[in-house]
Protein backbone atom coordinates (compact mmCIF):
# COMPACT_ATOMS: atom_id res chain seq x y z
CA UNK A 1 0.00 0.00 0.00
CA UNK A 2 1.30 3.45 -0.77
CA UNK A 3 1.67 6.03 1.93
CA UNK A 4 2.42 8.92 -0.38
CA UNK A 5 1.37 9.47 -3.98
CA UNK A 6 2.70 12.62 -5.61
CA UNK A 7 1.28 13.17 -9.08
CA UNK A 8 2.74 16.02 -11.13
CA UNK A 9 3.12 18.32 -8.17
CA UNK A 10 4.06 21.91 -8.92
CA UNK A 11 4.55 24.75 -6.52
CA UNK A 12 4.84 28.30 -7.73
CA UNK A 13 5.51 31.09 -5.23
CA UNK A 14 4.86 34.71 -5.92
CA UNK A 15 7.68 37.00 -4.91
CA UNK A 16 6.96 40.32 -3.21
CA UNK A 17 7.20 42.10 -6.57
CA UNK A 18 4.73 39.69 -8.17
CA UNK A 19 7.18 37.61 -10.22
CA UNK A 20 6.53 33.88 -9.97
CA UNK A 21 9.18 31.44 -8.66
CA UNK A 22 8.71 27.81 -9.58
CA UNK A 23 10.02 25.75 -6.65
CA UNK A 24 8.61 22.41 -7.87
CA UNK A 25 7.80 21.36 -11.41
CA UNK A 26 5.64 18.32 -12.21
CA UNK A 27 7.11 16.14 -9.49
CA UNK A 28 5.74 12.58 -9.38
CA UNK A 29 6.67 9.65 -7.16
CA UNK A 30 5.15 7.07 -4.85
CA UNK A 31 6.38 6.14 -1.39
CA UNK A 32 5.15 2.90 0.09
CA UNK A 33 4.22 2.35 3.71
CA UNK A 34 7.31 1.43 5.71
CA UNK A 35 9.87 2.99 3.38
CA UNK A 36 12.76 5.15 4.56
CA UNK A 37 13.34 7.75 1.85
CA UNK A 38 15.86 10.53 1.80
CA UNK A 39 15.39 13.62 -0.35
CA UNK A 40 18.68 15.21 -1.29
CA UNK A 41 19.51 18.29 -3.30
CA UNK A 42 21.35 21.58 -3.25
CA UNK A 43 20.14 24.65 -1.45
CA UNK A 44 17.12 26.17 -3.14
CA UNK A 45 16.36 23.03 -5.13
CA UNK A 46 12.88 22.70 -3.62
CA UNK A 47 13.31 20.10 -0.86
CA UNK A 48 11.50 22.04 1.86
CA UNK A 49 8.79 23.10 -0.56
CA UNK A 50 8.15 19.44 -1.30
CA UNK A 51 8.26 18.39 2.34
CA UNK A 52 5.77 21.12 3.29
CA UNK A 53 3.33 19.71 0.78
CA UNK A 54 3.93 16.13 1.96
CA UNK A 55 3.36 17.38 5.52
CA UNK A 56 0.01 18.96 4.61
CA UNK A 57 1.29 22.37 5.69
CA UNK A 58 1.09 23.57 2.10
CA UNK A 59 -0.91 22.57 -0.95
CA UNK A 60 0.49 22.24 -4.47
CA UNK A 61 -0.23 24.92 -7.07
CA UNK A 62 -1.11 22.08 -9.41
CA UNK A 63 -1.00 18.30 -9.31
CA UNK A 64 -2.42 15.85 -6.83
CA UNK A 65 -1.05 14.72 -3.51
CA UNK A 66 -2.58 11.65 -1.83
CA UNK A 67 -1.73 10.78 1.74
CA UNK A 68 -2.76 7.16 2.37
CA UNK A 69 -5.43 7.61 -0.23
CA UNK A 70 -6.82 11.01 0.83
CA UNK A 71 -6.52 13.85 -1.67
CA UNK A 72 -5.01 16.56 0.49
CA UNK A 73 -5.50 19.42 -1.94
CA UNK A 74 -9.26 19.29 -1.57
CA UNK A 75 -9.22 19.42 2.23
CA UNK A 76 -9.93 22.51 4.32
CA UNK A 77 -7.32 24.08 6.56
CA UNK A 78 -8.97 22.48 9.61
CA UNK A 79 -9.06 19.05 7.97
CA UNK A 80 -5.40 19.30 7.09
CA UNK A 81 -4.67 20.27 10.72
CA UNK A 82 -6.46 17.13 11.87
CA UNK A 83 -4.47 15.03 9.37
CA UNK A 84 -1.21 16.49 10.68
CA UNK A 85 -2.24 15.78 14.25
CA UNK A 86 -3.00 12.11 13.66
CA UNK A 87 -0.89 10.91 10.77
CA UNK A 88 2.29 12.97 10.61
CA UNK A 89 5.18 13.51 12.98
CA UNK A 90 7.50 16.45 12.24
CA UNK A 91 11.18 16.74 13.11
CA UNK A 92 12.81 20.09 12.35
CA UNK A 93 16.36 21.24 11.85
CA UNK A 94 15.99 23.73 14.69
CA UNK A 95 14.16 21.33 17.07
CA UNK A 96 11.39 23.87 17.85
CA UNK A 97 10.84 22.84 21.44
CA UNK A 98 8.84 25.22 23.62
CA UNK A 99 11.59 26.82 25.72
CA UNK A 100 9.36 27.47 28.74
CA UNK A 101 8.14 23.89 28.92
CA UNK A 102 9.85 20.80 30.32
CA UNK A 103 10.97 17.93 28.10
CA UNK A 104 7.97 15.95 29.25
CA UNK A 105 5.52 18.77 28.49
CA UNK A 106 7.06 19.16 25.05
CA UNK A 107 6.60 15.49 24.29
CA UNK A 108 3.01 15.60 25.52
CA UNK A 109 2.08 18.62 23.45
CA UNK A 110 0.71 16.93 20.30
CA UNK A 111 -1.86 15.04 22.39
CA UNK A 112 -3.51 18.43 22.93
CA UNK A 113 -4.56 18.50 19.29
CA UNK A 114 -5.28 14.88 18.47
CA UNK A 115 -8.47 14.65 20.51
CA UNK A 116 -6.89 11.96 22.67
CA UNK A 117 -6.95 12.03 26.44
CA UNK A 118 -3.81 13.47 28.04
CA UNK A 119 -1.37 10.62 28.52
CA UNK A 120 1.60 11.51 30.66
CA UNK A 121 2.58 7.84 30.88
CA UNK A 122 3.03 7.56 27.14
CA UNK A 123 5.09 10.77 27.06
CA UNK A 124 7.36 9.35 29.77
CA UNK A 125 7.68 6.09 27.90
CA UNK A 126 8.69 7.91 24.71
CA UNK A 127 11.29 9.95 26.57
CA UNK A 128 12.68 6.70 27.89
CA UNK A 129 12.66 5.34 24.37
CA UNK A 130 14.91 8.18 23.15
CA UNK A 131 17.19 7.69 26.16
CA UNK A 132 16.12 10.81 28.09
CA UNK A 133 13.91 9.25 30.76
CA UNK A 134 15.76 11.00 33.55
CA UNK A 135 15.58 14.40 31.83
CA UNK A 136 11.79 14.61 31.86
CA UNK A 137 11.67 17.58 34.23
CA UNK A 138 14.42 19.55 32.46
CA UNK A 139 13.52 22.63 30.50
CA UNK A 140 14.31 22.54 26.82
CA UNK A 141 16.93 25.24 27.28
CA UNK A 142 18.80 23.02 29.74
CA UNK A 143 19.37 20.30 27.12
CA UNK A 144 22.11 19.92 24.52
CA UNK A 145 21.24 20.13 20.84
CA UNK A 146 21.32 16.37 20.40
CA UNK A 147 19.13 15.89 23.45
CA UNK A 148 16.69 18.52 22.22
CA UNK A 149 16.42 16.75 18.88
CA UNK A 150 15.76 13.45 20.61
CA UNK A 151 13.02 15.11 22.67
CA UNK A 152 11.61 16.45 19.39
CA UNK A 153 11.62 12.93 17.95
CA UNK A 154 9.79 11.65 21.05
CA UNK A 155 7.30 14.47 20.53
CA UNK A 156 6.78 13.49 16.88
CA UNK A 157 5.78 10.01 18.09
CA UNK A 158 3.26 11.17 20.70
CA UNK A 159 0.20 10.61 18.53
CA UNK A 160 1.71 7.46 17.03
CA UNK A 161 1.72 8.73 13.42
CA UNK A 162 2.53 6.28 10.60
CA UNK A 163 4.59 8.95 8.76
CA UNK A 164 7.60 10.90 10.04
CA UNK A 165 8.88 13.91 8.10
CA UNK A 166 12.29 15.34 8.98
CA UNK A 167 13.79 18.46 7.39
CA UNK A 168 17.57 18.37 7.94
CA UNK A 169 17.20 16.89 11.44
CA UNK A 170 20.97 16.70 11.87
CA UNK A 171 21.74 20.05 10.29
CA UNK A 172 22.36 21.77 13.64
CA UNK A 173 24.14 18.85 15.32
CA UNK A 174 27.73 17.69 15.64
CA UNK A 175 28.48 14.38 13.95
CA UNK A 176 28.20 12.26 17.11
CA UNK A 177 24.77 13.66 18.02
CA UNK A 178 23.74 13.44 14.36
CA UNK A 179 24.76 9.81 14.33
CA UNK A 180 22.65 8.98 17.40
CA UNK A 181 19.65 10.82 15.95
CA UNK A 182 20.01 8.80 12.73
CA UNK A 183 20.28 5.55 14.74
CA UNK A 184 17.06 6.51 16.45
CA UNK A 185 15.28 7.23 13.16
CA UNK A 186 16.56 3.95 11.73
CA UNK A 187 15.15 2.03 14.66
CA UNK A 188 11.80 3.77 14.17
CA UNK A 189 11.91 2.72 10.57
CA UNK A 190 12.58 -0.87 11.58
CA UNK A 191 9.43 -0.66 13.71
CA UNK A 192 7.48 -0.03 10.53
CA UNK A 193 7.19 3.72 10.38
CA UNK A 194 7.46 5.50 7.03
CA UNK A 195 10.19 8.12 7.12
CA UNK A 196 10.91 10.89 4.66
CA UNK A 197 14.05 12.85 5.46
CA UNK A 198 15.53 15.89 3.75
CA UNK A 199 19.30 16.38 3.84
CA UNK A 200 22.36 17.76 2.09
CA UNK A 201 24.59 15.18 3.61
CA UNK A 202 25.64 12.07 1.68
CA UNK A 203 26.52 10.15 4.82
CA UNK A 204 23.14 10.84 6.38
CA UNK A 205 21.54 9.79 3.13
CA UNK A 206 23.20 6.39 3.45
CA UNK A 207 20.88 5.47 6.33
CA UNK A 208 17.91 5.42 3.97
CA UNK A 209 16.88 2.66 1.64
CA UNK A 210 15.96 5.03 -1.17
CA UNK A 211 17.21 8.38 -2.34
CA UNK A 212 15.35 11.02 -4.34
CA UNK A 213 17.64 13.68 -5.72
CA UNK A 214 15.93 16.91 -6.59
CA UNK A 215 17.43 19.60 -8.78
CA UNK A 216 15.78 22.91 -9.68
CA UNK A 217 12.40 21.63 -8.71
CA UNK A 218 12.46 18.37 -10.62
CA UNK A 219 13.38 14.82 -9.60
CA UNK A 220 16.84 14.23 -11.01
CA UNK A 221 17.17 10.65 -9.79
CA UNK A 222 15.32 8.05 -7.73
CA UNK A 223 17.63 5.33 -6.44
CA UNK A 224 16.78 2.32 -4.34
CA UNK A 225 19.94 1.54 -2.36
CA UNK A 226 18.74 -1.57 -0.64
CA UNK A 227 15.61 -3.58 -0.43
CA UNK A 228 13.40 -2.26 2.27
CA UNK A 229 11.93 -4.91 4.41
CA UNK A 230 10.01 -3.40 7.26
CA UNK A 231 10.41 -5.60 10.30
Amino acid sequence: MSMIEAIQLSRVYLRGDGTPVTALRDVSFVIGAGEFVVIRGTSGSGKSSLLNILGCLDTPTSGTYRLSGDVVGSLSDDERSHLRARRIGFVFQSFNLLPRATALENVELPALYSGAAPDRGRARELLGRVGLGERAAHYATELSGGEQQRVAIARSLMNDPPLLLADEPTGNLDSASGESVMQLLSSLHREGRTIVLVTHDEHIASFAGRELVIRDGVIASDTVRRAQVPA
Binding site: D77, A85, F92, Y113
Partner: peptide, 16 residues
Amino acid sequence: RREIGLRRAIGATRRD
Protein backbone atom coordinates in the same frame (compact mmCIF):
# COMPACT_ATOMS: atom_id res chain seq x y z
CA ARG B 1 5.67 32.88 16.02
CA ARG B 2 7.83 29.77 16.15
CA GLU B 3 5.69 28.28 18.89
CA ILE B 4 2.57 29.07 16.89
CA GLY B 5 4.07 27.53 13.75
CA LEU B 6 5.03 24.43 15.70
CA ARG B 7 1.57 24.09 17.23
CA ARG B 8 0.02 24.42 13.79
CA ALA B 9 2.42 21.80 12.40
CA ILE B 10 1.55 19.27 15.07
CA GLY B 11 -2.13 19.72 14.41
CA ALA B 12 -3.50 22.88 16.02
CA THR B 13 -6.25 24.46 13.95
CA ARG B 14 -6.53 28.22 13.56
CA ARG B 15 -9.32 28.12 16.10
CA ASP B 16 -7.11 26.24 18.59
